[in-house]
Design a protein around this nucleic acid. Structure first.
Lengths: 152, 152
DNA sequence: ATAATCTCTACCTATATTATAGAATTAGTC
DNA sequence: GACTAATTCTATAATATAGGTAGAGATTAT
């Protein structure tokens, strides 16, 4: 399960992608429009800002706007920013690899092999699907994805 | 990330699948062999027993053994027993479906659509891979999986 | 009997999740 | 310049989850 926070982040980014380019949306508007607790959303937007996904303007008539084009913000980036690694095992994580302390041999670990097969298509989808895709209502078709070889 | 408990459960089941049929393995042996805290493993085996995956004998020379053939215990079953739903969103769960309270319309939710694509191949692998596969060292090849249509 | 083992319940600690509160800062507007 | 509306930042809190420990009780083989 992804966290509620991650879901909120995706919804907020989608909302920001929908506003007129050049304009900004205020936290309150997004919060009420998406039914997200306002002060909670503030923190989420702040994290997205620190990651360089959105920009903000303070003060009267301030608000948030996307910093990068929606087509360059992937679901994977958002999930990694909010929830951390996408991988089901530490030893399969790209952004936070860690050896399983209790694993005898990573290369022969059968559990790892199974989850390597699991995470592969997941990454394919999450890294190729962007906020723009979500806004446009075109989720990537899994059948169109090239099949890649097993990870090393 | 799957929980450590789930990883322990999988390893314990694999260990049980390796012992001589008809015999039993004791918690202590599995615990030391797999580097799992013994009392923690006890609880895990108990849960697996209550789910009908393993059987136990108490008292002197007691222990655990698989109740079902290893080829009939899937990774998905184990994960669901220990960690709960496999789905990334409540609204995509088979075993614990729940509407997202803050979702306007489930059928047009773009986030849901994306994660529906994500969970599909994951389920394919986890529901087809068994403890026997892991023991035999043959993880299912993702390329061999039939591609299915999008979920409704 | 007794020793070994599973069974069951309770407990504990640390961390993550999901928020809420409020003061500080900034920027537009009158 | 004062006012107001907004973000920024930090702190706090309630709740849940994860990971593990403890120990009494039940059961079985010897």
């Amino acid at each position: 399960m992804i966290s509620r926070q991650a879901k909120y982040a995706l919804r907020a980014l989608i909302a920001l992608a929908r506003i007129k380019p050049g304009s900004a949306a205020q936290t309150s508007d997004i919060a009420s429009g998406e039914k997200i607790p306002k002060k909670f959303l503030e923190q989420i937007l702040l994290r997205l800002k620190n990651q360089g996904m959105v920009q903000s303007r303070r003060g009267n008539r301030g608000g948030y706007a996307l910093l990068k084009p929606a087509s360059e913000i992937t679901f994977a980036q958002v999930l990694r920013t909010i929830d951390g690694p996408i991988a089901p095992l530490p030893c399969l994580s790209i952004i936070a690899y860690a050896r399983c302390e209790d694993c005898k041999d990573e290369h022969t670990c059968e559990i790892r092999k199974v989850f390597a097969r699991v995470i592969e298509p997941t990454r394919q989808v999450l890294e190729r699907t962007t906020i723009a895709d979500a806004v446009a209502g075109r989720a990537i078709n899994i059948e169109a994805l090239p099949v890649t070889k097993q990870m090393a």
